[in-house]
Amino acid sequence: MLLEVTLSGVTLGGMYALVAMGLTLQYGVARIMNLSYGELLIAAAFAAFWFYSGLALNPLLGLIVVPPLAFAASYAIYRYLLQPLVRRAKSRDQLEVDSILATFGLLFVIQGVMLALFGGAYYSYSFLSVPLQFAGATVAANRLLALVLAVVIGLGLYLGLTRTRLGTAVRAVAVDPVAAQLVAIDVRTASALAFALGGALVAAAGVLVSMFLTFNANLGVVFTLKALIVVIMGGVGNLLGALIAGLILGLTENYVATFIDPGLTLAATYAIFLLVLLVRPQGLLGRANR
């Protein structure tokens, strides 16, 4: 029992980590606090649902089609909606407030579209829901597949950011946009790419999540919130921190849901968040600012 709960907690935590990695790219590099972030996850989940139920296609096909679309959409959002704010902002604080407001509006637009299309009901589909035996515990095949794919995507991102030229440029912007400019990095393009990449990641996570969780049009905010908490908890811009924090959150939620009460999972999330705020607001792996 404990092992099973732990395994499903790790799967959920892996999803949170993946979602948070995308957000830390958007917030850490492009400096946009994107409150509509989770809406993209739900939109991708609906897309996978539609692939499976509407077109009778394998939802994994969604993993090939949806993230590139989300990349393009996020790029367009950054380019046309957010870059004017970046240009207008006199300070980083100003940009933060403006981007919070703009993406908060976007949240309601995207959510409204999904509500109009799908209503407020919960959706799920049954894909690969065959039980597998794993070290004496029973796991659904779809969960295991989702976890494996999340690990592959996360690892790919990590290698891409640390081993390639473009990745290094993106990380440089995260550390110091002004200094990055001085060494001839195109900050604007790097920011736009990071923002779009974040969108693609959250869409991939949405497809994976849809394989084993039920979801509805109102759930985006909760994912945004959890991603933000994981990012803060791990330390802004820190991929490894996001992984650890995501796992902690996923495990805690699953333990609370199984052994205490499923109605208290968000309360558990908030309890963790409060703890982080009181004890280590710079994050587990974050450094105190100078």
Partner: peptide, 21 residues
């Protein structure tokens, strides 16, 4: 300010879930 925004973003949902529970 970021921490405050994040905290308030989910606060209504948290209270709603606690009341429901």
């Amino acid at each position: 300010g970021v921490y405050f925004v994040i905290f308030t973003l989910g606060l209504a949902e948290l209270v709603r879930q606690l009341v429901t529970w």
